[in-house]
């Protein structure tokens, strides 16, 4: 079933955009360039029936080139197939196009990727932080961020209750 999918993808109209196909432990990953991500996602959804975006995850490889990896885990409900689309962005400009036009579920996933890893998604309608306070300056899942954080960046409650407290 996996092989059939690989064959079909190799014959598809976006086969030239695929850089690499990996298969490990029964999980299939296709690697694409970050500028092709929306086109490939759209084709996979419309032609291959991958209607469900399960998750977007990010990896900080901490390398000079291709530092951040962004992985889209997608599911074809009808055929019970899973596929991972992987793409890389550079440290000096960690940005790529948003896939919200393809899957609406990407909205909060991309906000999380921005919050935790600092990856910008162009065309996102509301790219705010999702977990951390809006005035937090760092992206804590990056390798250079210290494990115990930076003292004073997250607010602790006041010792005394506010004077006008009711």
């Amino acid at each position: 079933m996996e092989n059939q999918l690989i064959e079909k993808i190799k014959e598809s109209n976006f086969h030239d955009k695929i850089v690499d196909v990996r298969s490990y432990a029964g999980e299939m990953t296709i690697v694409v360039h970050s500028q092709d991500i929306v086109a490939v996602c759209k084709s996979l959804k419309e032609q291959f029936g991958f209607s469900y975006l399960a998750d977007i995850s990010t990896v900080d490889h901490y390398t000079d080139e291709n530092r951040f990896e962004i992985a889209y885990n997608i599911v074809n409900m009808a055929d019970r197939q899973r596929l991972r689309i992987s793409t890389f962005v550079e440290e000096d400009d960690p940005s790529l196009d948003s896939v919200i036009p393809v899957w609406g579920a990407a909205n909060w996933f991309e906000r999380e990727a921005w919050d935790m890893m600092g990856i910008r998604f162009n065309g996102h309608p509301d790219l705010r932080r999702i977990f951390l306070p809006e005035d937090f300056e760092y992206h804590p899942m990056r390798k250079e961020f210290p494990q115990l954080g930076i003292p004073g960046t997250l607010e602790m409650p006041e010792k005394d209750p506010p004077k006008d407290y009711k």
Binding site: L132, P140, F145, P146, L148, G149, M156
Partner: peptide
């Protein structure tokens, strides 16, 4: 939970 987001002991507040 020795991480940036967790208060290291509630006696801090």
């Amino acid at each position: 939970h020795r991480v940036y987001g967790v208060v290291q002991g509630i006696d801090q507040f």
